[in-house]
């Protein structure tokens, strides 16, 4: 439970952080630390240098940008949860942020940290998929924008490359604001065994938690939803492309059952009618 020795550097700006990374190589960016620090304590990762970006105020905001809401990567879960702008415009995001861990975790953890960690069991990646968010990635060569569906590449691997930072997440506004998030776990504070995020309205989306190696966008089910298919058909389609596994909490079969069951419940909760 004691990490290997490392050096600590504090970045004073995004550009400074990227420059420090280029200088030190074997480094990790430290934001809220709620994924990175436990992995360091278990010595699953042992970076030589930690570059602390946690105090970069320039990355903490929730801005109305007309057709979308832009969220700075260092915005804490608690700030998402409490945002009246999000509650009004992107209600699914505000709600899901309130489902992460416990209040202590939500006071420290950041949306950018959660997304970049890319944990298939985490809540916010699924919300960003269902909401069809875009990720703004900043590196030495400038900025690029990656859609959420292309962001989660592999187990704990995202489109953010070495030395790059996720700096902003853009959530498109919708005509319809109905949504639902169904999370199943054994204890309130835990990661989901399975969860389903559903966003209705124009360009709707369905995303699944813990149903494969990456946060999962349910392509077929989302298409069926967009086409106005009956809820039972959408639930039937939700497993397409998933790759659930067995662990101490659940078998693959049980996870698949839960994904269908929770999809049905989420659609009903969101008030979906075909």
């Amino acid at each position: 439970m004691i990490p290997a020795s490392f050096d600590y550097l504090e970045a004073s700006s995004v550009d400074h952080a990227i420059a420090l990374f280029a200088e030190h190589g074997d480094a990790k960016f430290l934001a809220g630390g709620h994924s990175l620090v436990p992995m360091m304590k278990l010595r699953l990762v042992s970076p030589s240098v930690l570059i602390d970006i946690g105090r970069l105020a320039e990355l903490s905001y929730i801005d109305d940008r007309g057709d979308h809401v832009a969220v700075g990567a260092l915005t804490r879960h608690r700030e998402l949860e409490d945002s009246s702008l999000l509650a009004e415009q992107i209600g699914l995001l505000a709600h899901v942020a309130g489902q992460v861990g416990d209040p202590q975790v939500r006071n420290r953890g950041t949306i950018g940290g959660s997304l970049v960690h890319g944990d298939p069991a985490a809540d916010l990646p699924a919300a960003s998929l269902a909401l069809r968010a875009s990720m703004v990635i900043t590196g030495a060569a400038g900025q690029r924008v990656v859609p959420a569906v292309d962001f989660f590449v592999n187990f704990l691997e995202t489109a953010v490359g070495d030395g790059e930072l996720l700096t902003e997440i853009r959530f498109p506004k919708r005509t319809g604001t109905r949504w639902a998030y169904q999370k199943f776990n054994r204890r309130a504070m835990d990661y989901a065994i399975v969860a389903v995020a559903v966003q209705l309205g124009d360009n709707p989306g369905i995303a699944l938690v813990n149903m494969g190696p990456t946060p999962h966008f349910a392509v077929a089910a989302s298409a069926a939803l967009a086409a106005g298919a009956p809820a039972s058909k959408i639930a039937d389609a939700v497993l397409e492309g998933t790759g659930a596994w067995d662990d101490s909490n659940a078998t693959r079969e049980y996870r698949e059952h839960l994904a269908r069951e929770l999809t049905t419940r989420a659609l009903a909760k969101a008030g979906y009618t075909s």
């Binding site: 416990d102 054994r186 204890r187 309130a188 504070m189 835990d190 101490s248 909490n249």
Partner: peptide, 16 residues
């Protein structure tokens, strides 16, 4: 051992 940390050895909290 299959659940030797508090991540997978489940102890209910007050909220549970």
């Amino acid at each position: 051992p299959q659940n030797s940390t508090l991540m997978d050895y489940l102890i209910p909290a007050a909220s549970d």
